[in-house]
Design a protein around this nucleic acid. Structure first.
Lengths: 208, 208
DNA sequence: ATCGTTACTGAACACTGTGTTCAATAATTA
DNA sequence: TAATTATTGAACACAGTGTTCAGTAACGAT
């Protein structure tokens, strides 16, 4: 049923397809890429493509999946909080290693983030961040037991979404900011909040 | 060259196309929608479609553009800051009216945010938020003149991206949180920051 | 109400890309 | 080396595209 992926030929063909597909994605809109293009670029017969993937959407799906699950494996579960205290070093270290991973897989992330025809990628990446932050936050129940449930839902959404935006921005600016600086800035915003980071004093109001 | 859009027939056809297109987007993947589908749904000849749009991508583009520029018109330029003080009421009011607009145009935003074949929409929406926040933040130069430039760039990115995530989340949860509550929560996170909102005390470190 | 204009219809057209099939060939494993 | 299996390349029917054109219907202006 499944092609024995230990066969050298299979490995080669799939690698060729995926690699040239990424290359094409960096050059033109996913909508405009045909199976013919892919086969031509990868130097394989068009029929061969269909021996491995259902269609180009399937290929995209597989490539995405693979790249993202590799990314996930860099989410080692650490404890960033210690009874409401602590944080800084471990948190910064986490963000640092994330951005390292992004830099190492620049081709993949550029293709996925910036190709105009690819839907969904940011959503799926956000999903990863989201479940990471959700796990993180809900694991500190003793600390956050007083916080209202809506806030508990909203925060990881806001954070994960904001993080994706930052990653995208970082790539768009050709990664000119060092991973270390990114980590520091993010830590700062997380702890002091956007407005205080900008130097504003907040006029307190009755909460809740 | 351009069809006189005062002609009733033109107005009718375009309205029919756009409306049924939205309907189709709510039902199935953009990739799977054909011009044939659209023409059939809108009860027009297939050729007629091409008298108004180049192809389905062009149609999507126009619909997006229209919806987004209407959204933009709700971004009245207000001053939320008064010499580093102030904020609360006006800011909350702004977010409040935004979410009101989202609720009123639910069909449009649902189609654009959740259809799996549509790329780009979130990016473009974020672009809107981004330029809004950039304008806002850079207009308070006296206040923020001490803030380092990287932070000045990163913050609006983080905020706008986070906001998009919240909007998406809000729709996905069938808008069960009132606009007022959303506005309050967002204000809270903006001012106190994610971690303080969760009740954490931050162990200070040397900044910069 | 009539007339001139213009949008719509529907069928036909060539064309591009899809996904499948099949016998022949090449590469791989054991 | 033999047996297996992946790849090739050509052919096939098919779906959808984008354009054309003569005929018809709807519109705006007077």
């Amino acid at each position: 049923m499944d092609k024995s992926s230990s066969d050298l030929r299979v490995v080669k063909t799939r690698a060729a397809i995926q690699s040239h597909f990424l290359e094409l994605l960096l050059q033109k809109n996913f909508n405009e890429i045909t199976v013919i293009d892919i086969a031509k670029a990868a130097n394989i017969g068009r029929g061969t493509f269909y021996l491995h993937y259902i269609d180009k959407f399937d290929l995209l799906e597989k490539v995405m999946e693979e790249g993202l699950s590799e990314t996930v494996s860099h989410f080692q579960p650490e404890t960033y909080f210690d009874n409401g205290r602590a944080i800084p070093d471990r948190m910064i270290h986490f963000v640092l290693s994330m951005f390292g991973h992004f830099r190492e897989n620049e081709r993949f992330f550029r293709a996925m983030l910036f190709n105009k025809g690819i839907p969904n990628f940011k959503s799926r990446m956000q999903q990863l961040f989201l479940s990471k932050f959700r796990r993180e936050i809900s694991s500190m129940v003793p600390m956050t037991s007083g916080v209202d449930p809506i806030t508990m839902e909203i925060l990881p959404v806001f954070i994960s979404s904001g993080m994706i935006g930052l990653v995208e921005w970082w790539f768009r600016n050709n990664m000119r900011i060092s991973e270390k600086d990114m980590a520091r800035k993010i830590f700062q915003v997380m702890t002091r909040g956007p407005l205080q980071t900008l130097g504003f004093t907040i006029e307190e109001k009755n909460e809740h």
